[in-house]
């Protein structure tokens, strides 16, 4: 540790700070300004946003969809992470590698892949018709269901990895101890493992939620006309050259995201408290 004091070269941090100020902080301030100056001070963008049901509907739909996607990811990922964490070390690395494969592909290509699978003449319809389950192709692409299927697939690896890393911190001997003391396997999981691993699950769900809130490509490609989200609304307004209004929507999106994250954290704390309390009774 003594070497750490010898080099005092904080100037190495300056490029990072410069880039953050120029390409992150000032742009953020630019959005704030664009939302209320046009060119004089005005609240018309926010008034427009909150006076029309159309925009509030999109906001509500975005929040709801992101919550459901985060919940589905959390539920699917939990047993997967549990499975991986219980394997020998070498196998863990291989299984994580499998989970990571889709994470390396661009969201654009992964959404396109779902168009190929779910399309009118796509894989699933070809199978269904080939097996004689249906005569005419089933409409799957451009539906809300397609958005869920694709978004969960895209975000699931992130949830698994977060949940898994939290689980690796848990001492598995605690489970063994619970078993020796007479707990059934499911009791050991519910009363020991679950409360300890819930934090990582919630963290993962929050990351998935935040990423979903800003999703743009997937709803536009695999969703229907009704499935547009906040990000699609922003892009549309930018293309219409309504930057001020786009800025106002972005701010509402950001604040909405932060508020939801706070609420999710609160709720999860209550839930964890209940679980731990249940363990004592």
């Amino acid at each position: 540790m003594s070497t750490k004091k010898k080099i005092r070269s904080t100037w190495l941090l300056w490029p990072a700070l410069f880039m953050l100020v120029a390409f992150f902080l000032i742009p953020t301030l630019d959005i704030l300004r664009a939302s209320v100056y046009d060119p004089e001070f005005t609240t018309k963008h926010f008034t427009k946003l909150f006076s029309s049901n159309v925009y509030l509907d999109v906001l509500w739909r975005t929040i709801r969809l992101s919550c459901i996607v985060a919940l589905i990811c959390a539920v699917i990922a939990y047993p997967i992470s549990y499975f991986i964490v219980q394997r020998p070390r070498k196998q863990q690395i291989f299984f994580l590698f499998l989970v990571f494969i889709p994470l390396w592909m661009s969201v654009l290509i992964r959404s396109y892949a779902w168009m190929v699978v779910l399309g009118r003449e796509g894989l699933i319809n070809a199978i269904l018709i080939g097996l004689g389950f249906t005569d005419a192709p089933v409409k799957m692409l451009f539906t809300t269901g397609a958005v869920y299927v694709a978004m969960v697939q895209i975000l699931l690896p992130i949830q698994i990895v977060t949940c898994y890393s939290a689980m690796t911190e848990i001492d598995l001997d605690l489970m063994r101890a619970a078993r020796i003391l007479g707990a059934k396997p499911w009791q050991a999981i519910r009363r020991v493992f679950l409360p300890l691993s819930l934090d990582g699950t919630v963290t993962g769900a929050i990351i998935v939620f935040m990423l979903s809130m800003g999703f743009f490509i997937t709803p536009a490609l695999v969703g229907g006309r009704k499935d547009i989200m906040m990000a699609n609304l922003i892009e549309f307004q930018v293309n219409q050259l309504n930057w001020g209004f786009a800025a106002a929507i972005s701010i509402v999106l950001l604040i909405g995201t932060v508020l939801c994250v706070i609420i999710i954290k609160r709720l999860s704390k209550i839930l964890t408290g209940r679980l731990v309390g249940g363990g004592n009774a």
Partner: peptide, 24 residues
């Protein structure tokens, strides 16, 4: 504080940063 600041672009919705950079 600096660590929070450096990692903050990850947390903010991508579309928000994109619009900001564009206006900038």
């Amino acid at each position: 504080l600096l660590t929070y600041f450096i990692t903050s672009p990850i947390i903010v919705p991508h579309i928000f940063i994109s619009l900001g950079m564009f206006i900038f």
